[in-house]
């Protein structure tokens, strides 16, 4: 179901990664979309009384990471916005519509990192440009390194957890959900398989 544009973008970013990795020794990882060992969730207040969680079911991306030089790490993730899923048919339809994501006009959301800074305690700060609803803004993601190592099937995997907050109006989503629901938290769980 991928558009030609998406495919072209993906192959372009693949080419870029190939070229950049020819001088850096960083390992390249493909986010495990196939086995869905990765998720992009959002958490938003419902009226201020509870939390609503939803997710994007379809996204792909890659990252590069070198243990000897972690601050050179890079990540790029593309999200298919129409895959938004809050486990409610009518709400999802509403979220896809022009009040929220407007997926017809903005079929993709995207994060491209610009800077990664690792701390000594296993946490890190990931800065990058997040494009949503046609608007690109710099965001900072608080990252926790989860682990890395061989998997039982002959591969090598590495995983991170990330959290950040975005304001809906920063991305031109002005639908009024009440004062408690102007921001949402993005909960990111990423596992990559070394290529």
């Amino acid at each position: 179901m991928k558009s030609i544009l998406q495919k072209t973008l993906l192959s372009l970013s693949l080419t870029t990664l190939l070229f950049t990795s020819s001088y850096a020794i960083a390992d390249d990882y493909l986010i495990d979309k196939e086995g869905t060992h990765a998720s992009i969730q959002f958490k938003i207040s419902h009226l201020g009384y509870s939390w609503l969680l939803g997710r994007f079911n379809d996204f792909d991306g890659r990252f590069s990471y070198d243990e000897k030089n972690p601050d050179k790490a890079k990540i790029e993730v593309n999200i298919n916005t129409k895959s938004v899923d809050s486990n409610h048919a009518e709400r999802d339809k509403h979220l896809r519509g022009s009040d929220f994501l407007d997926v017809k006009q903005f079929p993709d959301a995207k994060f491209v990192s610009t800077h990664y800074k690792e701390n000594t305690d296993g946490t890190a700060t990931l800065t990058g440009n997040f494009t949503l609803h046609g608007i690109t803004k710099e965001i900072v993601i608080n990252v926790t390194k989860v682990g890395a190592g061989n998997d039982p099937w002959g591969g090598y995997r590495r995983g991170f957890e990330g959290k950040t907050r975005i304001a809906l109006k920063d991305y031109g989503i002005t639908k009024d959900l009440g004062p408690a629901s102007t921001e949402l938290e993005l909960l990111l769980n990423i596992e990559g398989i070394k290529q």
């Binding site: 409610h88 048919a89 009518e90 999802d92 339809k93």
Partner: peptide, 8 residues
């Protein structure tokens, strides 16, 4: 069909 699209 569209009200039951998610199985409810």
């Amino acid at each position: 069909l569209f009200a039951t699209a998610k199985g409810k």
